[in-house]
């Protein structure tokens, strides 16, 4: 009989319930203002729109758990979508393979620069973001000339209903990948190490862990998650453009922070991020419903991040 089987902390589950409460509250409030929202099709659409953000935030979660951040994830997402659409004439599978290769390449550069050369993750990924913008801006007219629409099958996968409402293909994809990520973080050696280096990289090194390898893997997985999210965004909007995923960058960070993952690393989980994603998605529906301006939306985003980060920081200081 293991004395240590259950290592989930009471604090974490408490904050998860609090987030769940906020989500339900927001949902009911929105339904009260717009009764249509309280219907299965509306929930289905909301969930399918939440899926891409959920995937980008998934990548952001594992980076932040290691104490890093990936601000190039939106451009990775857009880039993957771009490559898939350009390569689509040679078959969807080939196109997806190219997209994956691109993600692995960019993720590797980010991860190795952070892990081996001790680059500040913020600057590295901001710089990578600028490089990618440049590469694709040039690419549109030169080496990446071609189709700017997603293959039909991917458009379906990004929008169509799965069996019946409120289930949709993007939701299924999100659920499957999210489940895999939860498994990775909670049940695998790599997951343990992601938490370990985020909490204390020095301790991990002393225990014989090659920290750079973990960081490399983290940024590659993050890029792949971003890429999948990007393909879904591309499929939902029909055509791809360089600025495709830009509106997702800051929300991807916001969803993780709302979900209780510390930007200093080592604490948090993807369950929180999923709730953070849903809260942001419902919130943006609510704000659209009451015809609030972009201004109010931005201010509310900012206030939420600040308040929650402050609360989490006080909780961890007092314990």
């Amino acid at each position: 009989m293991s004395t240590l089987k259950n290592f989930a902390t009471v604090k974490v589950s408490k904050s998860i319930w609090a987030l769940f409460g906020i989500l339900i509250g927001l949902f009911l409030l929105t339904s009260f203002i717009d009764p249509y929202f309280f219907s299965i099709p509306a929930v289905g659409v909301t969930l399918s729109l939440a899926a891409p953000l959920g995937l980008l935030a998934a990548g952001q979660t594992i980076c932040m758990l290691t104490g890093g951040i990936d601000l190039s994830i939106a451009m990775i997402a857009a880039g993957a979508a771009f490559i898939v659409s350009v390569k689509s004439p040679s078959g969807t599978a080939t196109a997806l393979l190219w997209g994956a290769l691109f993600c692995i390449l960019v993720g590797s550069i980010n991860g190795l620069a952070v892990g081996l050369f001790g680059m500040n993750p913020l600057i590295m990924t901001l710089g990578m973001n600028a490089v990618l913008i440049g590469v694709f801006t040039v690419g549109v007219t030169t080496f990446l000339k071609g189709s700017s629409s997603m293959p039909e099958i991917l458009v379906t996968a990004s929008n169509a209903t799965f069996l019946f409402d409120p289930f949709s293909w993007p939701l299924v994809i999100w659920a499957v990948i999210g489940g895999m990520l939860l498994f990775l973080l909670n049940k695998t050696g790599l997951g343990r190490l992601i938490y370990a280096i985020g909490d204390n990289a020095q301790a991990a090194r002393l225990a014989g862990v090659k920290v750079w390898q973990v960081q490399w893997a983290t940024y590659v997985i993050c890029a792949l998650l971003g890429g999948i999210g990007g393909v879904l965004i591309g499929g939902q909007s029909g055509a791809v453009a360089i600025s495709l995923a830009n509106p997702f960058l800051l929300p991807s960070v916001a969803a993780v922070v709302i979900g209780g993952t510390s930007i200093m690393g080592g604490i948090g989980n993807y369950t929180g991020t999923i709730l953070g994603t849903l809260i942001l998605t419902v919130l943006s529906y609510l704000l659209a419903t009451i015809n609030s301006s972009e201004a109010v939306k931005q201010m509310i985003y900012g206030a939420i991040i600040l308040t929650l980060a402050w609360t989490y920081s006080k909780i961890s200081q007092n314990s």
Partner: peptide, 9 residues
């Protein structure tokens, strides 16, 4: 990051 949202808003 949070204040950047707020201020743009």
């Amino acid at each position: 990051l949070a204040t950047s949202f707020l201020l743009v808003g």
